[in-house]
Amino acid sequence: MRPKHVVIVFAVSFLAGTNLAQAQTATGTMGVGAEVNRNCTLSAENLNFGNLSVDTTNTTSVVVTLACNGVTTVTTVLVGMGENAAPATQRNMKLGTGTDVVPYTLHVLEAGGADIATEGAVTLVKVGTTNTYQVTLYGRSQPSTDYAKGTYSDAVLLTAVYAP
């Protein structure tokens, strides 16, 4: 055999073996999906008056936030009277289990203005292009030397009204 023929035969057999060793492939598809439920989360920090003054009006504020998923229109938050309302139109913070109370009012204007009424509707404002809505509530209590010493509290129910 001539040397040129040996090289050609070796090269052909090497290439033929390489083709036999190539990997095979198969293809398919995988579905991907999710469901978006229309819901909102309503939150607010505690409205904390701190230490009450006996000679000046006490004021504080809190931001109420409504974060929504899949909701297109949010209009209001209903602000309840609180657990210690007495009479039904007067919000009160109560001292523990006793009968002592500190009356307070809620407003949507920092300067005060009209009180938020019983189950009063407060308009929310959309934050930028997000699905988050906010309103600032302002609290006010009058000074008095008649308040008994201690820690007073109340809980106000907030209810969001939105259209899915």
Rank of each mutant, 00 (worst) to 15 (best):
G28V: 01
L124E: 08
C40R: 00
V6N: 03
V108D: 08
A85I: 06
F49K: 02
P87T: 03
T56E: 13
A26F: 15
H107A: 03
V32N: 09
S53F: 12
V36T: 15
T129Y: 09
L47C: 01
V101R: 00
K126D: 05
G50Q: 11
A23I: 08
G82E: 02
V54K: 02
V122S: 01
Y104L: 03
D115E: 13
S61Y: 06
D115S: 07
Y104E: 04
V101E: 07
A23C: 03
F14H: 06
A67C: 02
Y104F: 08
D115L: 04
T105H: 02
V102L: 09
G17E: 12
A34F: 11
L52G: 05
T105N: 06
T72W: 13
Y133T: 01
I8S: 09
G80P: 04
A34Q: 07
G28K: 05
L42P: 10
T97M: 14
P103A: 00
N39W: 02
G50C: 10
A88E: 07
T76Q: 10
V32H: 05
L66I: 00
T75V: 13
N19G: 15
T60F: 07
K126Y: 07
F49N: 02
L78G: 04
I116Q: 01
V125W: 01
E45F: 07
S53C: 04
V102I: 12
V6Y: 14
M81E: 13
G80T: 05
V54P: 08
C68W: 03
F10S: 12
N51M: 14
H5M: 15
L78V: 12
L124F: 09
A21N: 11
G82K: 01
G33A: 13
L109N: 13
V32W: 10
A34Y: 15
V125K: 06
T132H: 04
N48K: 10
L78W: 05
E110H: 00
A34P: 01
G96F: 08
P87L: 03
E45W: 05
A16L: 15
H107F: 13
V125F: 13
G17K: 00
V102G: 01
Q90F: 08
T41R: 07
V101H: 04
I116L: 03
L95C: 10
D55Q: 04
V79W: 01
N39C: 05
A85F: 04
G82Q: 04
E110I: 00
S13V: 15
T60Q: 06
Q22G: 00
T56M: 04
L124Y: 02
L109H: 01
A114N: 04
T130W: 06
G128F: 11
V62Q: 00
G98D: 12
G82L: 11
G31F: 12
G98C: 13
G33W: 13
T25L: 12
T97C: 12
V74Q: 01
N51H: 01
V63W: 05
V101F: 06
A44Q: 07
T60C: 11
T123H: 02
K126T: 03
A26W: 13
Y104K: 00
M93Y: 11
M81W: 02
F10A: 15
V12F: 14
L15T: 12
T65M: 06
V6L: 13
V62N: 03
